[in-house]
Design a binder for these strands. Structure first.
Lengths: 337, 337
DNA sequence: CTGAAAGCGCTAACAG
DNA sequence: CTGTTAGCGCTTTCAG
């Protein structure tokens, strides 16, 4: 009942250890007959190489880490699945690591992925505490790529989607529908993405000779925030004909608020969200929104990281374009000025 | 610029390699002065032990894997965070692995967590293809625990929450509010949990001398399914005073459907969901629902798994109790019969 | 309390 | 094409 090791394979197949290792790694040339013997022995013994020994001997693990904070996000889900697949195609395995902000001892950043040399590289997925994390990675010289970085001038390799364009497109869509009284609920101001989307919103308006109706920042994303903001607007007699929400949750909240006061969407009010979370396509009316190119994000991140690991020096960050998804929550403006 | 190894620490601290290893592992007794020397050297050198070498030498990795399929779930998120923390407290690290159903070659179940001996044990989180996965784990003799198993008679160790009780409590809540015309939208029938919840629903009704108004299974969970079911009910003149939905998404869909026809919730219709997803507490009205004890699930899973790894033989699966969360979507029945 | 010696299982030059 | 010889970096008996 002992564990079968490469030696058992050697014995059973009759060839030398090195030859076995060779067929294991598809390396060099091995006489076909020998290769078959080895393969057969491996099969008979149900042998699988010990990964620790492998890693030790070759100095790399074949593992890529991906650090994230939450499992409650459609976009993350999409990215991670793509990364998983791309990595697999390249012969790597993916291990996710949950980043829990350590409240106590800041010296105890035990998040294994970088604490030890367990991975060959890391993809950092939209971490709030990105700055410190990245600093550690640099110190430990672990190759990494950041998806959706929050720090602007990060000299690290990043994969991003152009939030400015996203805000611009969203707002242009509204303008093209004839809207002129366009409000914006934004998220927490300290997010780079939030500021960028707002900038896009402002640009689209000024390009059209319009000016922002009102911009409200919220403490957090989420339905409740959107609801509250919209309620406040109404209390102040603020009735836009269209709203650009910086997040689908906010958008849903806004819709609920206006609907609860008898407004019809999109007849009385157009609403556009951001991110295309699952529920966006499911609620009524289906939400018009801006979708992040999840597949591309994942693929680019993997490509960049692998090149980095292979020592390539000339790599450049990538900025992807978001996509407008028109559904049922936006419509032509019927209100005359 | 070479990697610092334990030998560098030996040299710098002046003690033997073994002593260094001892302080590294807090093992045996080491003279305090020596311990300090070592610690200092480690610090000066910024030394971290090589995990591959460690794993190889001691035959275990200190890593626990958790396999799941999706990152779009509040409950999973809660469980995983708890598992992460519990594991950390026990000196283990957590690595998540995305399980993508391999469409092609079924022999190519490359999901690393069990493909190689990279982990000391595995937590399987609600896998659709549980059966095959578990079979592999058994064959490879990797210790594992399943959270939310879908196969009934699984002889494996499992951590579950009693879905029967959940359905029972949800329905009892409605009955206690005076409802008698209680409908049930259920999920896909092949889920064990779905069938259990329904069984609870039926039991609660029969205990109260009532009978099911209507039970409709859906092809999938989600808002859209709930919406469609409710619409169909209405078309058939089916007007319950309360609905027990097998899932928060379904519940939201039901609410939307009835609201769109002018019904007020909870005044004209009470709705209760299941799972307490994030949005449940955010939508309007806030959804009454059944919450899964995520923390307990995570903790028990970890406890069981670690005991299993330590060779303990007498372990038993655990069944946890769900919790009724009363919010705003359910109210006293005002309709006279 | 400490150190010398013997691996853990596999890969990587280097000669045949 | 194949085998010999060294390690990879650390833990673990087993004597001091």
């Amino acid at each position: 009942m002992k564990k079968v090791s490469i030696l058992d394979v050697v014995e059973k197949s009759g060839v030398s250890l090195v030859t076995v290792s060779r067929v294991l790694n598809n390396v060099g040339t091995v006489r076909e007959s020998n290769r078959q013997k080895v393969l057969q022995a491996i099969k008979d013994l149900d042998y699988r190489p010990n990964s620790a020994a492998r890693s030790l001997a070759r100095g790399s693990t074949g593992l890529i880490g991906l650090t994230l904070e939450t499992l409650k996000d459609t976009v993350f889900d999409g990215i991670v699945h793509t990364v998983n697949q791309s990595l697999e195609e390249s012969g790597y395995f993916l291990a996710l690591s949950i980043f829990s902000r350590t409240e106590g001892d800041p010296d105890q950043k035990t998040n294994f992925l970088f604490q030890e040399d367990r991975v060959d590289g890391i993809i950092v997925l939209s971490l709030l505490d990105e700055e410190n994390y990245v600093m550690e990675l640099k110190r430990k010289k672990i190759p990494f790529v950041i998806i959706d970085n929050h720090v602007a001038n990060s000299r690290a390799l990043t994969v991003n989607v152009d939030n400015y364009i996203g805000g611009l497109e969203a707002t242009k869509h509204l303008i093209e529908l004839g809207h002129t009284r366009i409000a914006h609920v934004s998220g927490p101001d300290h997010f780079l993405s939030v500021r960028e989307r707002k900038r896009g919103y402002e640009k689209a308006l000024s390009d059209a000779g319009l000016s922002p109706l009102i911009v409200t920042h919220t403490e957090s994303f989420g339905i409740r925030s959107g609801f509250d903001v919209a309620k406040t607007w109404m209390q102040n007699g603020m009735i836009p004909t269209a709203v650009f929400a910086g997040d689908d949750g906010l958008a849903l909240g806004v819709m609920e608020a206006y609907q609860s006061e008898g407004y019809k969407i999109p007849d009385d009010l157009s609403v556009i969200g951001y991110d295309d979370q699952v529920f966006a396509a499911e609620i009524h009316p289906r939400l018009t929104t801006i979708r992040q190119p999840m597949e591309q994000m994942g693929q680019h991140a993997v490509r960049l990281l692998l090149k980095l690991i292979q020592g390539s020096k000339r790599n450049t960050s990538v900025v992807l374009q978001p996509e407008l998804i028109v559904r049922e929550s936006t419509a032509i403006c019927l209100k005359k000025d």
